[in-house]
Nucleic acid binder design. Structure first.
Lengths: 198, 198
DNA sequence: CCTTTTCTGTATCGGTCACTAAAAAAACCT
DNA sequence: AGGTTTTTTTAGTGACCGATACAGAAAAGG
């Protein structure tokens, strides 16, 4: 008995799908970054007026929070593999490669929303949102590494985030996927030396 | 006979030092990024009013260009070592380490102005400015590597910029210098494998 | 002295920012 | 139908954005 059924309520029904609105907002935030996207632009892209946006989502920052969550569940879904119990080195490398693919996937993809979406952002709340997700990613990587090699988990998890940062920033700067794959292979040598590949 | 003497001209003399203004603007652009700094804030920090700023520098973008040049000649001076004729691997690593030091040097240092100062920036002219400097850096690294190992110059120069991107982004995200040094050592293994250390 | 030139501060330009007050519109209820 | 609830649209709020018009002030040349 899944409770996803919509409860019938009084009042004028909403003329748009809030989840579809979040998806559209995610695209916009991803392409331009938090500060560079205006509320008027968000509303127009969703197909509504600003008051409807505020009624549905509360504020630009809360909509961004929804967008980050949506992004994590779609573009960033491959990070869930860090929770699996495969070999650490191979898992980390494959996640880095998927990150490169996601950050260069289509013409409008520009790096990673979580890593670079709030760079130079004036809203500290928005910055804190992405920072929390980044901390969660580091924690996942740390836990994966610590299962087999607890003594290098701190260093390796830091290095994983370091390389992730390079991937997102480079993707934004226009480095194509095949170059990113080369870079990941080179960066992976440091990871392999610490973790032992295989 | 250096021609740095100021030419005496008619008219009311300028009440501030334009070069000192550029230095102050550089700090501001570095700390907050291009878009997040307003003209009013720039003028106030320099100690002038907006009209004086426009009279002296032309526009916010032109002042930013001056700031980038000033930054390259001060914070980024160590990149000149890429032009020296030392061993490629050691030179590249030491430059990366200096970049980490510059990006975490004091409390207000936030990564690299050239690498991250125009992230999520809405002014395409400002973005082009930093991109040109980045391309120049890559070119320097490429030339250094190509002297001894032309067959890997493309890959190694790309990887050098990849690691540089990670350093700046990580510094902004709060990674301390000692962790960055560890990360550089790990990333350097990929560089060493290509270039041969020594 | 007076004119010319350049810089100064004040006060503001039109445009956009995130956000909202108010009322019309579209559904439900009795 | 009449009343209630919620969303819609219209039309704005004050604050800030980059950039300037204007007039007074401070120097030089005559």
């Amino acid at each position: 008995m899944t409770d996803t059924e919509k409860v019938k309520r009084s009042g004028r029904p909403r003329a748009f799908d809030p989840e579809a609105g979040v998806a559209a907002a995610t695209r916009l935030f991803w392409e331009k970054g938090y500060d560079a996207v205006g509320v008027a632009e968000l509303a127009q892209t969703i197909g509504i007026n600003p008051p409807s946006l505020y009624a549905a989502y509360g504020s630009k920052r809360e909509l961004f929070a929804r967008a980050v969550a949506h992004y994590a569940g779609t573009q960033g879904r491959f990070f869930a593999r860090l929770d699996a119990d495969g070999p650490a080195y191979e898992t980390l490398i494959s996640v880095l490669e998927d990150a490169a693919r996601a950050g260069t996937g289509d013409a409008t993809a520009r790096g990673c929303l979580v890593l670079d979406g709030t760079r130079n952002c004036t809203d500290s709340g928005a910055r804190a949102l992405t920072a929390e997700v980044r901390a969660g990613l580091r924690e996942k990587a740390h836990a994966l590494i610590a299962r087999d090699r607890p003594e290098v988990a701190d260093s390796a998890a830091d290095y994983f985030m370091f390389v992730l940062t390079a991937i997102s920033g480079s993707a934004i700067d226009g480095v194509p996927l095949d170059r990113l794959m080369q870079d990941i292979a080179l960066a992976g040598q440091g990871l392999g030396a610490m973790l032992g590949r295989g």
